[in-house]
Computed example of a mutant assay.
Amino acid sequence: MNSRTRQELRGKVVAITGGARGIGLATATRLHRLGAAVAIGDIDAPRVKAAGEELGLAMHGELDVTDSRSFTEFLDQVERELGPIDVLVNNAGIMPVGPVAQEPDTVSKRILDINVYGVILGSKLAVRRMLPRRSGHIINLASLAGETFLPGLATYCGSKAAVIGFTEAARREHRGTGVRFSAVLPTFTDTELAAGTQGARGMRNATPEAVAEAVLSLIVRPRPQVRVTPASGAMSMSQRFMTIPVADFLLRAFGMHDAFTTKVDTEHRRAYESRARGDETS
């Protein structure tokens, strides 16, 4: 990382949702070490407190991204303690897996509430603060699953497709205002979300650090989208030029037709599924 990049990041106020673990924590760690003023929020109050204290962050707190009051209070606290928010990273998300016919309505709603409404709510609350200053950047964590549709992840894929569409429309809407919108589309990443599942045959999962690096690259050089990893991103983009039968054939060839249905290690995944589905604090 060159000195110019460090200079650009130093003192920037960055708020990250879902910051207690996984991609959110990796992003907070990377930006904090480069001199950004980082705040993390998470629904898991003990975990976010421990993560914030371990990193030495100036601000960390409990945050329910599905609750307007909670989100507003979190952003208010960030601005009181750190200053006007330069970047909001809407990272919080969940990924329960399994056949859609067996998915309880409460789980479907929870996925949409966190993955879609949480992103829209955070974006609206942040952009209202940024527009008067004509400056700010909202980075939304989507997924390659939002453009590569997989059995066993129907609601999750739908939620991430919604994030991609929302972010791109908001980006166009705010062109010329000084407020930027970007989306990060990771492949399956080595976090708890992917516990007990296998990635695409012959393709490597992303690491949380690689996704954090992608977020960093957007802050330094804003652009509409970035895909992680490059190989998975290229494969995902190529499908738009394929016929449906060819795309379906490749899905099977890469072993993704049953990776989130019959090939899931349910015991290895049990703790994450319980938390993601709301059986315990997530």
Results as ranks from 00 to 15, higher is better:
Asn2Asp: 13
Arg4Leu: 13
Arg6Lys: 13
Leu9Glu: 01
Gly11Lys: 03
Ile16Glu: 02
Thr17Cys: 02
Gly18Pro: 06
Ala20Ser: 14
Arg21Val: 06
Leu25Arg: 11
Ala28Ile: 08
Arg30Thr: 10
Lys49Ile: 04
Ala50Cys: 02
Ala50Arg: 04
Gly52Asp: 01
Glu53Trp: 03
Gly56Ala: 07
Gly56Phe: 04
Gly56Cys: 03
Leu57Ala: 10
Ala58Asp: 11
Ala58Arg: 14
Met59Arg: 13
His60Asp: 02
Glu62Arg: 14
Leu63Asn: 03
Thr66Tyr: 02
Thr72Met: 01
Leu75Ser: 08
Leu75Gln: 10
Gln77Ser: 15
Gln77Met: 11
Glu81Ile: 13
Glu81Gln: 15
Gly83Tyr: 11
Val87Phe: 08
Val89Ser: 02
Asn91Thr: 11
Met95Ala: 14
Met95Trp: 06
Met95Tyr: 09
Val100Ala: 14
Val100Leu: 14
Pro104Met: 10
Pro104Ile: 12
Pro104Gly: 11
Thr106Lys: 11
Val107Cys: 10
Val107Ser: 12
Ile114Val: 15
Asn115Lys: 11
Val116Lys: 01
Gly122Tyr: 02
Gly122His: 09
Ser123Arg: 08
Leu125Cys: 12
Arg128Asn: 14
Arg133His: 09
Ser135Glu: 13
Ile138Val: 15
Leu150Thr: 11
Pro151Ala: 07
Ala154Thr: 15
Gly158Phe: 09
Gly158Glu: 00
Ser159Cys: 09
Ser159Arg: 04
Ala161Thr: 12
Ile164Gln: 10
Arg172Lys: 13
Thr177Met: 06
Gly178Gln: 08
Arg180Glu: 05
Ala183Arg: 03
Thr187Arg: 00
Phe188Ser: 11
Leu193Ser: 12
Ala195Met: 00
Gly196Gln: 06
Gly199Lys: 06
Arg204Trp: 00
Arg204Leu: 08
Thr207Arg: 08
Pro208Gln: 08
Pro208Tyr: 11
Pro208Ala: 11
Val211Ile: 09
Glu213Thr: 15
Leu216Asp: 02
Leu218Met: 01
Val226Cys: 03
Val226Leu: 03
Ser232Cys: 03
Ser232Thr: 10
Ala234Asp: 06
Met235Gln: 12
Gln239Ile: 07
Arg252Cys: 02
Arg252Asn: 07
Phe254Asp: 00
Gly255Phe: 05
His257Phe: 00
Asp258Thr: 15
Thr261Val: 12
Thr262Lys: 14
Val264Asn: 08
Arg269Gln: 05
Gly278Lys: 05
Glu280Ala: 15
